[in-house]
Amino acid sequence: MISVIVTYKIKKEFLEQNKANIEKFIQDFEKLDATQFEYKIFTKQDGLTFVHHSLYKNEAIQKQLLSVPSFLQFQKQRDETGLDGKAQIEILNLLASSNEKWKK
Rank of each mutant, 00 (worst) to 15 (best):
K24D: 07
L55D: 07
V6P: 13
Q17Y: 12
I41N: 00
H52Q: 06
N99V: 12
K9I: 05
S67T: 09
K12T: 10
S67A: 11
M1H: 07
I91W: 09
D79W: 07
A34R: 15
V51L: 14
Y56K: 03
D46F: 00
L32V: 01
K9C: 04
S54M: 12
E16T: 05
F14V: 06
K103M: 08
K103V: 05
D28I: 02
I10V: 03
I5N: 13
D46H: 02
E38H: 12
A34H: 11
S97I: 00
F37L: 03
F50V: 01
K101G: 03
T35P: 14
G85S: 02
D84S: 10
N21G: 08
G82S: 04
K40T: 15
N21T: 02
G82M: 00
E100D: 14
S70E: 00
E80W: 01
E100G: 09
K103A: 03
E23I: 12
F29L: 04
Q75E: 13
W102I: 00
Q77I: 10
E80I: 06
L66G: 15
E59M: 15
E13S: 09
I22Q: 08
N99M: 11
L15I: 03
V6H: 02
Q17I: 14
L32K: 08
N58K: 00
H53I: 08
I26A: 09
N18P: 03
G47W: 04
F25M: 01
L55S: 09
K11V: 07
A60D: 08
K103Y: 02
G82D: 02
H52G: 09
D84H: 09
Y56D: 04
Y39K: 10
A20G: 08
K11P: 00
D33E: 06
T43N: 06
H53F: 12
L94F: 07
L83V: 05
I26H: 08
F25H: 02
I10C: 03
L65T: 05
H53D: 06
S67W: 11
K86R: 13
V4C: 13
L65Y: 00
D28Q: 12
K31A: 06
F37P: 01
I91V: 15
F14Y: 12
V68E: 04
A96R: 14
N58D: 01
T7A: 05
N93Y: 07
A96P: 08
L65F: 02
E13Q: 11
E90M: 11
L92S: 08
E59D: 13
E30K: 15
S54L: 14
E59W: 10
L66Q: 14
Q27H: 15
K57V: 07
E23L: 11
Q45F: 13
K86N: 15
